[in-house]
Computed example of a mutant assay.
Amino acid sequence: MNYVKTITDQIEAMWMGFIAILPNLALSLVVLFLTWLVAKFAVRIADRIVGHTHVRTDLKRLTATAVKLFIWILGLLIAAAVAIPGFTPAGMIAGLGVGALAIGFAFQDIFENFLAGVLIMLRDKMNIGDWVDAEGVSGTVEKITLRETHIRQFSGELTILPNSMIFKNAVKIHTDQPVRRYDLMVGVSYDCSLPDAEAAIVRALESVESISKEKPVDAFARAFGGSSIDFLVRWWVDTERENHFLVHRDVIYAIKRELDEAEIDIPFPIVTNMFPETLRLEQEDTGNETAKPVEGN
């Protein structure tokens, strides 16, 4: 057997086959170029159509991505059918066989995050700009993509969480309702008049202009503390108009001022030490003084 001639014939056959499909390859490139143009204009049209509706920003991005993805998949299939005669999607899947299963396992996380991103965008809650707590991260939702969610923490850091983690776990949305309630514990001394203390705290809350007037303020005596009677103080803030941190500060200032004017103390923690036996204090001196016992509890 002439191995050189066999190899030469095979190379020549491959070259002739390549030459034969060059027109098909050129036509498939034209199809890809047309696909790019169609996808570009289709996305613009979709943006104009969706732009006139009251749809969330992330849903608008999802619509544009879905339109572009559909057109590109269709274009790639047409280009493959033009370049390779007899090509069909079913034949491609059958040809992959076990490889398709391996690819599926390899990209399992990507597919999971992609589906979770679609479901997150379709639900009503958690919009861009919301203050959320998710997986120990607290901050503002800055961006939602098909694979991940960007949360800007209040300290400035950007945290990127996979969409599957956001979708499968609990997420606290602080800004779901604009008017929110805030709580504070205030301790007053045991020897004061509790009704007077409650009235002073309520006056303090009512004097803060930034507190929402649509809902009442509350002050309830809740517990006997170690050194004080503890009041639970509650108020509401419209977070769309007011900074709740500044309101919290103003509330503390006002309560302290009203309690001082009413001569009601906010006691320091008191610690009582109990001793089972009498303590003896010894004092060093040049004289002959003897140590005297000190009575104690």
Rank of each mutant, 00 (worst) to 15 (best):
A221S: 12
S228W: 05
D218R: 12
V233R: 10
L246Y: 08
H248C: 05
V251C: 00
F220M: 15
L279A: 12
T239L: 01
R222Q: 12
I266H: 06
L281G: 04
P269I: 08
F231K: 11
T272S: 10
D250H: 01
E284C: 08
H244N: 06
P269L: 06
G225T: 05
T272G: 06
P293N: 07
Y253N: 13
L281P: 00
E284I: 07
V237E: 05
T286L: 12
V294H: 01
D285V: 13
E242K: 07
G226D: 09
D265Q: 09
G287R: 10
I270N: 07
P293L: 09
F231A: 12
V217P: 11
F245N: 14
N243D: 15
N273P: 06
R241F: 06
I264P: 05
T290H: 10
I266R: 13
P267I: 08
A219D: 07
M274G: 07
A254I: 02
F275V: 07
D218C: 04
L232V: 02
I270D: 08
F275Q: 05
F220S: 05
S227M: 03
L246F: 09
F231T: 10
F245S: 15
D260Q: 03
A219N: 03
E240M: 03
R280S: 14
I264N: 03
F224E: 09
W236L: 02
E295Y: 09
R241S: 09
A219E: 08
F220T: 14
G296C: 13
A262P: 07
N243R: 01
I264C: 05
D250P: 00
R234A: 07
E295R: 02
F224C: 12
V237W: 02
